[in-house]
């Protein structure tokens, strides 16, 4: 049996240089296509208005001053919008994570009548696409008097959704039952078992949900477009839309604004890449 190790090691012998070069070539082309537009936007965000018309176009701008970034804040209240969007993302995410974890735990571990049927019905709501219910949702917000208020931006998303609950449930199902029972024997009550024992164990799943939720709220467009008109409470995507509408040919300033809108999710992504990619793969499976 020891002999079998030798051919195995052989299998991973060094590849031919040509194969290796082709592999890296394919990856480089792929990577360039993926972030080329973003790199070009960053480059453009430093260019002077005149530089945009130069032929051939230059990737490296003549200087790296922040004039265009400063102009964005003159043209639209982006500072305010950055703050608002961050507030909405933080509030909705906090609520989502709290309630999805709670419901996910109950659907995984609690015993109550009709549990699995209720869960399936809840999961079925994933089939309703956001774009299909926007009109009645607008009517609902209108009759509640929430149109053009912060409430419309926060409350509907605050109590969790089917995908987040699905994600948490799958994770809680994978935690060994014994831990819970041991805590119960020690006299912990229902809430303590959940809050002190189970929730801390679910940290990886909580991270996935946090990252996904933050980025989704940050990038949301249709909902704020329909619900918000007041600039004081509007979001970065609406700000960018208005900038685009008023200064459609001022490309350097538009690029500076776009870069600022993209940057926060990218930073979150760079720090929590694994959590994000795991979440996306599962979101795909949950049918999002």
């Amino acid at each position: 049996m020891t002999g079998s190790a030798a051919p195995r090691a052989h299998k991973h012998r060094r590849r031919k240089p040509l194969t290796l070069a082709l592999g890296y070539l394919a990856l480089t082309v792929l990577a360039t296509m993926a972030i080329g537009p973003i790199i070009w936007a960053i480059s453009g965000s430093f260019k002077s208005p005149g530089e945009v018309f130069v032929t051939p176009p230059q990737l490296i701008p003549s200087s790296f001053n922040l004039d265009n970034y400063a102009k964005v804040f003159e043209f639209i209240p982006l500072g305010r919008q950055l703050f608002n969007t961050l507030l909405y993302a933080a509030a909705v995410t906090t609520g989502q994570v709290f309630f999805c974890a709670l419901a996910g735990y109950a659907f995984a571990r609690k015993k109550f009548y009709g549990r699995d049927k209720v869960f399936l019905a809840y999961l079925a709501t994933l089939m309703v696409p956001a774009t299909v219910v926007i009109i009645p949702q607008f009517m609902l917000m209108r009759s509640l008097g929430w149109v053009d208020t912060i409430a419309a931006m926060i409350i509907p998303g605050l109590f969790g959704n089917a995908f987040g609950t699905y994600l948490m449930r799958q994770f809680f199902l994978s935690i060994p039952q014994e831990l819970e029972e041991a805590a119960r024997v020690d006299g912990a009550n229902q809430w303590q078992v959940y809050w002190r024992i189970m929730l801390p164990l679910a940290r990886p799943a909580l991270a996935v949900l946090t990252v996904l939720s933050m980025i989704t709220v940050w990038n949301d467009f249709l909902w704020p477009l329909v619900m918000i008109h007041n600039e004081d409470i509007s979001t970065v995507t609406l700000g960018l839309l208005h900038l685009q509408g008023s200064y459609s040919t001022n490309f350097p300033v538009l690029m500076a604004a776009s870069v600022m809108v993209i940057l926060p999710p990218v930073i979150v992504y760079l720090f929590a890449q694994r959590a994000f990619v795991t979440g996306v793969a599962q979101a795909g499976l949950a049918g999002r």
């Binding site: 973003i38 990038n219 992504y269």
Partner: peptide, 28 residues
């Protein structure tokens, strides 16, 4: 390479639309 290729996932569609509009500009 994986990190780079997956990056468009987190980029706002609105911002990317604005960026692509420049790439698509007829004259510049």
């Amino acid at each position: 390479f994986r990190a780079v290729v997956f990056l468009p996932l987190v980029a706002s569609t609105v911002a990317m639309a604005v960026i692509w509009m420049w790439l698509f500009n007829t004259d510049n």
